[in-house]
Write a protein that binds this DNA or RNA. Structure first.
Lengths: 398, 398
DNA sequence: TGGAATTTGTTTACGAATGATACGAATTCC
DNA sequence: GGAATTCGTATCATTCGTAAACAAATTCCA
């Protein structure tokens, strides 16, 4: 129990000594000693070559996450490719693979082996015992059990993707299928040091979102929360779903028939000074500001993070959006800060993997009765009959 | 730790035997025996006169919450009165007091003693040692620390009400100041047996809301979440904040100058068949449906509960609202069910008290290090040197 | 009517986790 | 080089929960 708390202290990449942890958790150093020994034999933490002594007294031994302690695969599915990444415990991408799909994306059943083969080729880079599992991000409505309820872009309806993957994948892999905005938000969350109230807005063909309240994902009763794109807004007298105005599919002037999102965005940037484009951007800014204001009044995030292909247009309208957003805010209601996402095109795939990573740090749900350990705690280096307290000491004793 | 879990099992008013609890929590009966003895000496649970033997074998002893185990006061503040209720552990109102305020409500500082005197007169009904504290519901923006940031109806700005009450109230009282919609939602939540994803919408002069995701209140970064009334919507070409269309202050045709909400509502009901009123109700239904659809796409509640004075008009438009709401829902997105609130005019006061009650059942926040017990566990009947296991047995041994 | 079967609640012995305390180790200060 | 300080560990006591056994209260059935 305490060992999990210790692990959580290292979650953000910090280096702490045992004594630091003891102070942070309000327990004795002895207790931390046991917990760390446990984590070390499980291969989840490492001692680092002691950074800076500085203070008087015996310097502590810095502990950090073992990057190789656990590995996670993340896959993003869209109409062009299956993009997969392999993530280590410190959130570093250590391998990637993009597998273009032709027209096969229409058939979810046919995509299952494609997803798994992309994953398998990443899995080859690492020790299978350390591989926690596979996360998949899908653009569309995904239920609590990873079933794709409706993914209009892909043309999928009611397909139990998580179940299908679970059946076909190695039994040791954990499988998690989720909405792409949820995944993207998880990536941002994992990179945060402290939990915050964060609204992730994914600007792609549609407009998706995910809200993390104090670091906790708000998924709703069915897992469908965050459909910001379907909010009805009215811009310059025209009323309709936000994503018909702020999403790529409805971006005025930019999205010519047959163009990809990237082409449209490139064209907008190339013609950024023409009156036509300026007007279109202004309309976009207006729609965005109203949508974000509505979401802010309902959710009160401290930060809004914009991601997705269209978000590269945001700097062009940043001033207009923030200004209108502030103007729309209720008296006393603080306008959240607006940023671009930390991760770019790979964000959803990284986030899908990050969701699995988060399980390792997740507090047990005290609501339920019995729960298995989130990760098999097999030692990286099998040591015979060690009293656990000697598990680290290689560096010190050598 | 286990004793809290036992308490939580009884939260909804259920009667369970020790063996039932052991099965539910996946622990041995011995463990439950200890935990229950602890709860019994703390005066939080009681044995009941054994309801129904039924099954073969020795019948279990039914346990339930001791209604007198803890008492909570809740106060609602509006422009007409300070309304206070005294709630027991089983959510029953055991005393009430309405203290009309004249024009003094404008001065928050002057309201502090009025709130406390109303509370004191309720506190006289009960044992001070069993009185957990006082919850206060305020119509307006309330920050995380119970400071009223902006309450337009009352004309309050930036007043640290919780702090002021804490200073003036008896030191043993816990004080909690929150938004009225949050309070109302807490009342509904407490009456639920299972945690659900519930959107509470409070239809008063303004339109407030509160969302509970799987039973957990979503309060936002500053505690300002739920300002549904400030969502910009467009109804029949007219665009503006939802509460100017669906709130009493902006209810067309009904709210004549100088009328109270109650008068306006009565007038609407009296003239429900005139074309004018029908048109007004239709507009109201339309605005409500759009607001609820927007909120549903963002939050995905399984239930929406309507409360507040205006909610009595809802049955007149129920069909229109549910129909339009369904029509606006995204393909695959389930429309939530719509209900009227369980509690009427006292809902906010009851909810303010229920928030304190919820603390007794709250799981400890594993994020923080040291936490005091949420409730002083002084025995109701001081028994000398009892080995705790004999604490109940009165009924059995007599 | 009286045992057999069954379920409940408690008791006793034991194991695991954590705190308290003491001690050796590693470093700075002087 | 010694005093001061901090770190990590070892040892013992305490607390919490389990396992197993047992007494109690009831139904079933001859």
């Amino acid at each position: 129990m305490i060992s999990l708390q210790c692990l959580r202290l290292l979650q953000g990449g910090q280096s702490l000594s045992r004594a630091d942890m003891a102070r942070a958790l309000g327990v004795t150093r002895a207790t931390i000693g046991h917990a760390v020994a446990e984590l070390a034999t499980a291969g989840l933490v490492l001692e680092t070559p002691t950074p800076t002594p500085e203070r008087i007294g015996r310097p502590g031994v810095a502990l950090r996450l073992n990057p190789q302690g656990a590995l996670f695969m993340g896959v993003e599915i869209d109409t062009r490719a299956v993009s997969a990444v392999l993530l280590d415990l410190t959130m570093r991408v250590i391998a990637r693979k993009v597998d273009p799909v032709g027209d096969t994306f229409h058939d979810p059943k046919a995509m299952v082996p494609r997803i798994l083969s992309a994953a398998q080729s990443l899995a080859a880079h690492t020790d299978p015992a350390r591989l926690a599992g596979l996360g998949v991000a899908v653009p569309g409505l995904v239920g609590r059990h990873g079933q794709v309820v409706n993914a209009p872009l892909l043309g999928w309806r009611n397909f139990a993707l998580q179940e299908a993957l679970q059946d076909a994948a190695p039994a040791t892999w954990q499988i998690d299928v989720c909405n792409d905005a949820f995944a993207f938000a998880s990536a941002e969350r994992a990179a945060d040091l402290e939990p915050s109230s964060l609204l992730m807005v994914l600007l792609a063909e549609g407009v998706g979102s995910a809200y993390l309240d104090e670091g906790r994902m708000i998924s709703g009763a069915h897992g469908f929360a965050g459909e910001l794109g379907h909010m009805i807004v009215s811009v310059h007298g025209k009323s309709g779903a936000l994503e018909t105005m702020a999403g790529a599919a409805g971006f005025p002037a930019a999205m010519r028939p047959g163009w990809s999102v990237a082409q449209g965005v490139a064209d907008v940037l190339a013609t950024a000074n023409t009156p036509e484009t300026l007007a279109a951007l202004d309309l976009w800014a207006e729609a965005l500001a109203i949508g974000l204001a509505n979401a802010t009044h309902l959710l009160d995030p401290s930060r809004i993070v914009l991601g997705g292909p269209l978000s590269v247009l945001y700097p062009a309208v940043a001033d207009a959006v923030t200004q209108r957003l502030s103007a729309l805010m209720l008296q006393g209601h603080a306008a959240p800060s607006l940023h671009l996402a930390r991760y770019g095109g790979e964000g959803a795939a990284i986030g899908a993997a990050a969701r699995l990573r988060a399980r390792i740090f997740a507090l047990p749900d005290l609501g339920k009765s019995p729960s298995a350990t989130p990760f098999p705690t097999a030692p990286v280096v099998p040591n015979r009959a060690n009293p656990a307290s000697r598990a680290l000491r290689q560096r010190t004793t050598s």
